[in-house]
Amino acid sequence: MARYKDAVCRLCRREGLKLYLKGERCYTDKCAVTKRAYAPGQHGNNKRKLSNYGMQLREKQKAKRFYGVLETQFRKYFEMADKQPGITGDNLLRLLETRLDNVVYRLGFATSRPEARQLVVHGHFTVNGGKVDIPSYLVSVGDVIAVKDKSKASPKFKELVEAAKATTPQWVSADAEKLEGKIVSLPTREDIDLPIAENLIVELYSR
Rank of each mutant, 00 (worst) to 15 (best):
R3E: 13
K5A: 07
K5Y: 06
A7Q: 10
L11W: 14
E15W: 07
L17S: 10
Y20E: 09
E24S: 13
E24Q: 12
E24Y: 07
E24C: 05
C26S: 06
C26K: 01
R36G: 07
A39P: 04
Q42G: 05
Q42P: 14
G44E: 08
K47P: 04
K47Q: 12
K47T: 06
K49S: 02
S51D: 01
Y53I: 02
Q56D: 03
Q56M: 11
L57T: 11
E59I: 05
E59R: 09
A63N: 03
K64P: 14
K64A: 10
K64I: 15
K64E: 15
R65T: 15
Y67N: 15
G68N: 06
R75W: 08
E79A: 13
M80N: 12
M80Y: 07
D82Y: 13
G86Y: 12
T88L: 00
G89P: 13
D90R: 06
L95K: 10
L95N: 14
E97D: 01
T98P: 11
T98Y: 02
V103Y: 04
A110C: 02
S112D: 03
E115V: 05
A116Y: 08
Q118V: 12
L119A: 04
H122G: 08
G123N: 01
G123I: 00
V132R: 05
D133W: 04
Y137F: 15
S140R: 12
V141Y: 11
V141C: 07
G142R: 04
G142Q: 04
V144M: 07
I145P: 03
A146I: 00
D149R: 07
A153N: 09
S154V: 07
K158L: 15
E159T: 12
E159I: 06
E159G: 05
V161S: 09
E162R: 12
A166G: 09
T167Q: 13
T167R: 09
T168K: 06
P169Y: 09
Q170S: 15
W171G: 02
W171R: 04
V172A: 03
S173T: 15
D175V: 10
D175Y: 09
A176T: 13
G181V: 08
K182M: 02
P187C: 04
L194V: 15
I196W: 02
E198I: 11
N199T: 14
V202S: 05
V202I: 06
E203N: 11
E203M: 13
Y205M: 11
Y205A: 05
S206F: 01
